[in-house]
């Protein structure tokens, strides 16, 4: 396995990080009836904090329903947060209007899971790639088209593809086009929302390598969202593990993967460990049940109903992120906070 890109320790970097998310919350109201009474909330993101430094890849991993796609959209302000702060380059963008955000959008772009669906089927590839250029007023006409050809080249496709339509490309090629479009405005942050999840394994590798190459060439930061730990581990500098709207563990990728501190991370990593391709001999931990609905989360620690090591405090008190190792690792688990007086450990 190739080693990850140069690690940057966010805590040691002077000046503001590229992206700083603090206590981000997003609740979607559930309405009922003609008058749209709010009868409850879907607590998709329930207090998330992390940072992304320049040139860094932060992996955001979790099951479906954990809230990671919502985080992606909050970060890009495609959604407005219910509470919390999102700072890009030190500047608060959580409360900005859409109009104010428009010029800022050129700095952060997104690559979607289903690239073909993210292209208007009636537009040629040229139009698809030049759209952000025109929308941002950067360039248009021939100039934009030339830039599009340049971008296609950068991702390994050809200028001859400019006049084709989206449905004429395979999945891998389409994703390259998606990346090309995302790069059009020279962004500094790229959010990859399950960018390789729908691709064949061999094509996945190609695209991941392209992403890494571009990161080095262009100095990009990535927020890489996925549910497949292998992929996340391959590309990330740091990993944040999400469960039911909260980050329950985060830290340098390799450390989190080889020595998980949170029981949930252990089950994920245990699943990897059992995979013969990755080797390792950790004991497999079986987890009970399914992730509950975010509209009705459990009290206390969100994982406690399924946690094999849960004890009484877990159901009453939400664990805060506690230091869990070097490199600024944290994990939100009461097990890290056991003293002889506050509970017994279950191992």
């Amino acid at each position: 396995m190739a080693s990850p890109a140069t690690q940057v320790d966010p805590a040691a970097t002077p000046g503001a990080p590229l992206m700083e998310v603090t206590d981000l919350v997003k609740h979607f109201p559930i309405t009922k009836g003609l008058l749209r009474r709010t009868v409850g909330h879907v607590r998709a993101v329930d207090g998330v904090s992390f940072t992304i430094g320049a040139g860094e890849t932060v992996g955001l991993v979790g099951e479906s329903g954990s809230g990671k796609s919502t985080v992606a959209r909050l970060v890009l302000r495609l959604l407005g947060p219910t509470a919390g702060s999102v700072k890009f380059d030190g500047r608060e963008i959580a409360g900005l209007s859409q109009r104010e955000l428009t010029p800022l959008r050129r700095n952060m772009q997104i690559v979607f899971q289903d690239p073909v669906s993210s292209f208007d089927p009636r537009m040629t590839i040229s139009s698809v790639i030049t759209e952000p250029l025109e929308a941002q007023g950067i360039s248009s006409g021939k100039q934009a088209r030339d830039r599009a050809a340049e971008l296609l080249d950068l991702v390994g496709l050809s200028g001859r593809d400019l006049d084709k339509y989206p449905h004429q490309f395979s999945g891998g090629q389409a994703q390259r086009i998606g990346i090309a479009r995302a790069l059009a405005t020279n962004p500094r942050l790229l959010v990859c929302d399950e960018a390789v999840s729908a691709l064949d394994v061999s094509v996945q590798a190609q695209v991941l390598n392209l992403l890494r190459k571009l990161q080095v060439e262009l100095g990009l930061s990535y927020l890489f969202i996925a549910h497949d730990l292998n992929v996340v581990r391959y590309i990330s500098d740091r990993i944040c593990v999400m469960y039911l709207g909260r980050i329950i563990e985060q830290g340098p990728a390799e450390a989190v993967m080889t020595d998980p501190q949170h029981p949930y991370t252990r089950t994920l990593a245990g699943a990897i460990a059992a995979d013969p391709r990755t080797g390792g001999g950790t004991r497999r931990v079986v987890v009970r049940g399914e992730m509950p609905s975010p509209s009705n989360p459990p009290s206390g620690c969100p994982f406690h109903p399924r946690c094999p090591q849960a004890f009484d405090r877990c159901s009453t008190e939400v664990p805060a992120p506690l230091p869990a190792g070097e490199g600024g690792r944290t994990a939100s688990c009461h097990l890290l906070d056991i003293t002889p007086t506050n509970g017994k450990a279950v191992r």
Binding site: L76, L78, T102, P103, R105, R106, Q109, I110, F112, D114, S117, S118, F119, D120, R122, M123, E131, P132, A135, Q136, R181, T185
Partner: peptide, 25 residues
């Protein structure tokens, strides 16, 4: 549609989205 969300992410104004993606479809 995803391409509408993508257009918003690119910074397209509502007007532009309606004009280029809404009406032709």
């Amino acid at each position: 549609e995803l391409y509408v969300e993508s257009a918003r992410a690119s910074g397209c104004s509502t007007w532009r989205i309606l004009r280029r993606h809404g009406l032709p479809n």
